[in-house]
């Protein structure tokens, strides 16, 4: 497999895994959980280094996952006290975990250059270099790992589609029919944590955060059907992966950054030209409405009352 294809496939798999969960995060107004996770995993990496003296990807992903899950559950618990709102809970938990990680590095691990850029902020350009032999073919490790995560997410969302839909739309009703919103919320957050952690290592944190938030938000501007929102999210994710790679190569810039910018561009376009919720469509609607109201008023004041039947 060529390096180009391998990188695009890696990014596409991240877009798939993230795109399945992103719409639910956006609809539940917890989009920024993804950014929280991206910072909260640091102590996990430090702990793994301290215990096993390794930076091998699988143990690192394991350690990071533990702290990512800790982070999302702590946010959930803090929110559950009803003393702290969801957004503030996020802003309290992740900097604390990040601080623990930074202190761990300076105290115990400063000699190993466990520097943030290369460890949690993986670089997608290097993803094709680590390979695993699968059925005699060398396949990038990131592709193998991310395929697994994407598959799990597909299963999760397909199998629990109606449960996720019901608990996101109307949690109280869900409780009366025996579907626990708390359970589904935790399941979703744990899935986000594991997806994010696995993807950080291959493509870097910011691309994962971007792909969890931006395509789903863009899709939210474009559609009124949940399944269509998920489908649109996936499409925008893949467009970002392909176009971003092409753009990065042609101007020799960061691949992850370029992919993020393409996603942002998609958002900007949707914000302006979305047929139902875009700025242009809405201002046209407003103008049309006011014009028709004016016309009716004009008809109504005519003495013959021609507008009586409108």
């Amino acid at each position: 497999m060529s390096d180009n294809l391998s990188i695009i496939l890696t990014a596409g798999l991240v877009a798939t895994a993230a795109g399945l969960l992103g719409p639910f995060l956006v609809l539940r107004r917890v989009a920024l959980t993804s950014d929280a996770v991206s910072h909260a995993v640091l102590p996990g990496i430090v702990v793994i280094w301290l215990i096993f003296h390794t930076r091998a990807p699988l143990p690192v992903i394991g350690g990071a996952a533990v702290f990512a899950i800790l982070c999302v559950l702590a946010i959930d618990a803090l929110k559950g006290t009803n003393l702290v709102r969801g957004d503030a809970a996020i802003a309290l938990v992740f900097p604390a975990l990040f601080s623990v990680g930074v202190l761990g590095i300076t105290r115990y691990a400063s000699d190993i250059h466990l520097d943030l850029d290369s460890t949690i902020y993986g670089e997608i350009a290097f993803s094709p270099f680590e390979t695993l032999p699968i059925a005699g073919v060398e396949i990038a490790r990131s592709i193998v790992l991310l395929s697994g995560v994407a598959l799990v997410n597909i299963l999760l969302v397909v199998l629990l589609w109606k449960e996720f839909k019901a608990t996101t739309f109307d949690p109280e009703f869900s409780r009366t029919i025996g579907i626990s919103p708390k359970l589904l919320s935790r399941l979703l957050l744990v899935a986000v944590a594991i997806t994010a952690v696995t993807a950080f290592e291959s493509v870097g944190a910011i691309l994962v955060v971007t792909l969890l938030i931006v395509p789903a938000t863009t899709a939210y501007l474009l559609t009124d059907r949940l399944w269509l929102m998920v489908a649109t999210t996936l499409a925008i994710g893949w467009i970002s992966a392909v176009a971003g790679y092409w753009g990065a190569v042609s101007v020799d810039a960061s691949i992850a950054g370029a992919m993020g910018l393409v996603a942002a561009l998609c958002f900007a376009i949707a914000l302006f030209v979305s047929p139902s919720y875009g700025l242009i469509a809405r201002s046209l609607q407003r103008r049309r409405r006011s014009r028709s109201v004016q016309r009716e008023l004009a008809l109504a004041v005519k003495p013959q009352g021609a507008g009586a039947d409108t």
Binding site: L27, K165, T168, F169, Y220, T223, D224, L226, L228, M229
Partner: peptide, 9 residues
């Protein structure tokens, strides 16, 4: 109690 903007029919 529910979110009327939710993409649902």
């Amino acid at each position: 109690a529910v979110d009327w903007d939710f993409p649902i029919t």
